[in-house]
């Protein structure tokens, strides 16, 4: 087996535990390891892979899968995927078990009640940051606002919503 496979596992497994608040926090360090330390790809290739990971469906941390695939084929993709997801999955699984055993305890209600306002603020901030990075000017912003209104008012599923947004942008853009 390619020796890079073990190295990939060794890079991504520790990074897994540093992904607080989503995968964005570790991108810079992945880039440092893959481009500067191991010279597996150029910075330009890294940015392209990052863009593809952002565009594709699924968790953004699948960037690890893409890097693994690029560096060492199928086994590389598998090792990187296992590395980036397993440690944190084990952690939250253990917590979920403890949680159901102590339902209603004061520390548990404090954690739930205390973390919810924080989560709300962070989601709103994410929205803010996403709007800032939005391409397509006022038309794109109008679509984002219309989509929000539609979601608040109806039970529309996300996929048709994105299809409508996409079609609306293409049509209005052409006018």
């Amino acid at each position: 087996m390619n020796p890079r496979v073990a190295t990939l596992l060794g890079i991504f497994a520790p990074l897994s535990l540093l992904t607080i608040g989503g995968g964005q926090t570790i991108i810079a360090d992945i880039q440092r390891q893959v481009v500067d330390v191991h010279h597996w790809m150029s910075a330009g290739t890294f940015v392209t892979l990052f863009a593809i990971a952002r565009m594709a469906p699924g968790p953004g941390s699948l960037l690890a899968t893409l890097i693994g695939w690029r560096v060492a084929g199928f086994w590389g993709a598998l090792a990187a995927t296992i590395g980036i997801f397993t440690p944190t999955c084990v952690l939250i699984y253990a917590l979920a078990r403890i949680w159901s055993r102590h339902r209603g305890a004061r520390w548990q209600r404090a954690l739930e009640g205390g973390l919810r306002p924080l989560a709300a603020g962070m989601i709103l901030a994410t929205t803010w940051v996403l709007v800032g990075g939005l391409e397509g000017g006022w038309l794109a912003r109008a679509i984002a606002i219309a989509a929000t209104a539609l979601l608040l008012a109806t039970k529309i599923s996300p996929l048709p919503l994105l299809a409508i947004g996409s079609a609306a942008f293409v049509l209005l853009h052409a006018l």
């Binding site: 989509a147 209104a149 409508i164 853009h173």
Partner: peptide, 12 residues
């Protein structure tokens, strides 16, 4: 771009 804009609606 259009799909990304609608996706921001989800976040909002």
């Amino acid at each position: 771009d259009g799909a990304a804009a609608a996706a921001i609606g989800l976040s909002a």
